[in-house]
């Protein structure tokens, strides 16, 4: 399993639009992927659960991937989050 810690830098966090891009990206990978914020651990491939986790500006989250493309998954998802500006 691979884990990456990232900080949310865009003002709207992982809400509708950035959240949608994040989930779409996650679905490109075969690995099981989860996002961990504090006590909450949610499926990265479900926009509903990602939105309800309330991930917003300044939050530190971990991206966990488990599977054949786990390395690539955490790297690309972390890079995507860092690229959000909205």
């Amino acid at each position: 399993m691979q884990v990456r810690e990232v900080e949310i830098v865009n003002p709207t966090g992982l809400h509708t639009r950035p959240g949608n891009r994040f989930v779409k990206k996650a679905k490109e990978f075969a690995s099981e992927i989860h996002v961990v914020k504090g006590e909450k651990r949610v499926n990265a491939k479900s926009l509903l659960t990602i939105m309800k986790a309330g991930i917003s500006l300044g939050d530190k989250i971990s991206i966990e991937a488990d599977g054949q493309d786990e390395q690539q998954a955490v790297e690309e998802l972390a890079a995507l989050i860092a690229s959000f500006t909205e």
């Binding site: 509708t16 639009r17 949608n20 989930v23 491939k45 926009l47 659960t49």
Partner: peptide
């Protein structure tokens, strides 16, 4: 694109596995 992405989000939720 901005508004289109709102409905892409709707599409994502509609087809959400959990739902």
């Amino acid at each position: 694109d901005d508004l289109a992405e709102v409905f892409e989000g709707h599409l994502e939720i509609l087809t959400d596995e959990g739902l």
